[in-house]
Amino acid sequence: METTPTARIRAADADRERVATAVQTAGSEGRLTLEEVEERLTRVYAARFTDELTELTADLPRPDPPRPGFPLTREALRRHPALRLHLAVAVAVAVLVIVRWAVLGAGFFWPAFPLFWLTVSVFVHARVRAARERPRAAVPY
């Protein structure tokens, strides 16, 4: 009975670029000498299969995954009209309850409670949007 060799996966240009970036980063951090960087980059761009790429970065530390930043930014508001609308509605409701409090002359600042929950809802919405946008973990080489 003839056994078939294990199937090798061909490397894509994106795979090569990802590994090349890791090698260049290691060189800029001083983990590799200039000669090692040149040698590995030559091998990266000559690689045809992903297992060839894996061995080029096996001795390099893996970068820490990026931590999510503050979810409510101008860029997030620009990209997500629903988030922008949510924030606009929250601000409008906040203005209405504060005006009502001021007109009625109530001593206790009762709008603090709805304002708190409006703020929490906007931040949760922004955090969920940011989590949905975050790229899934790629297979490290």
Rank of each mutant, 00 (worst) to 15 (best):
A7M: 14
R18N: 12
A92Q: 05
E38V: 04
T33W: 04
L85Y: 12
P135F: 07
A126E: 02
V95P: 00
T25F: 07
V120S: 03
V97S: 08
L104C: 05
T50A: 02
E52G: 06
P71S: 08
D13G: 15
P66R: 07
L104H: 13
V23A: 01
G69T: 12
P68D: 12
E39G: 09
L104R: 14
P61C: 03
V37Y: 01
A82E: 15
S121I: 04
E75I: 05
V103S: 02
T3Y: 12
T119A: 13
A76F: 00
F108Q: 09
A11N: 04
A76H: 00
V91S: 03
E133A: 11
L115R: 00
H86P: 01
S28E: 14
R74Q: 09
R10M: 14
L56S: 02
A106H: 14
R127E: 09
D64T: 06
V93P: 07
R134K: 13
L56A: 02
V103T: 09
R74V: 11
V19G: 00
A106N: 13
A102S: 14
R132H: 09
A88S: 15
P135M: 06
P5Q: 15
R132E: 11
V122T: 07
A7D: 14
P140H: 06
A11H: 01
V23N: 00
A94Y: 04
F123C: 07
I9Q: 15
R18I: 13
A58H: 07
A14Q: 14
T54M: 02
R100H: 12
I98P: 00
L83Y: 00
E39A: 11
L72K: 06
G107F: 11
A88F: 09
